[in-house]
């Protein structure tokens, strides 16, 4: 069986934990996020004929005070960058995180998830920066932890990229 370490990264409050909670097998309390700064969950899915176990490291969100511990990112086979569509600044933070992660683990597959797609009418995100990122080769998915939109797809997509 193939396992991959997948980190879920993003700004504080972008809905990382909510995003994965409904779709993963979980055994640890969210309290680890505030204490140790990470919570490990698992998601097993089939990519083609192979079963892949994604060990998800849900890493505590970054804010003005706490930077992401890069130690947790080490050895990741891929990662999700999560930004909140209603808070444009979180996209910027995602970009910053991506730069640091790229330095730490190199060019491993990643997806940018623009979360809270269910609140699209109140999105403050302008098109330009998103398009610029797409132009730079980023894959961006609009997701909603609330409706489940694109969540399964996001896991599958990242898994495919990591295996290819």
């Amino acid at each position: 069986m193939i396992q991959k370490k997948v980190c879920v990264l993003g700004s504080f409050g972008v809905g990382k934990t909510s995003l994965v909670r409904r779709y993963v097998q979980s055994m640890f309390s969210d309290a680890y996020l505030t204490t140790v700064g990470v919570k490990v969950d698992k998601k097993t899915l089939a990519v083609g004929s192979a079963d892949v176990t994604l060990v998800l490291w849900d890493i505590a969100g970054e804010d003005d005070i706490n930077a992401i511990r890069m130690t947790y990112v080490r050895g990741a086979g891929g990662y999700f960058l999560v930004a909140d569509g209603t808070r444009p600044e979180t996209l910027e933070i995602a970009r910053s995180i991506q730069a640091r992660v790229n330095t730490e683990v190199g060019a491993v597959p990643f997806l940018l998830l623009l979360n809270k797609a269910d609140l699209q009418e109140s999105w403050g995100l302008s098109r330009e920066p998103v398009e610029a990122l797409e132009a730079a080769g980023w894959t961006i998915l609009r997701t909603s932890a609330k409706t489940g939109e694109n969540v399964e797809e996001a896991f599958l997509e990242l898994a495919k990229r990591m295996l290819s």
Partner: peptide, 12 residues
């Protein structure tokens, strides 16, 4: 998950 978390705690 246990091994992931143990690893995370070690790192921490």
């Amino acid at each position: 998950m246990v091994s992931g978390m143990l690893s995370a705690i070690q790192d921490f």
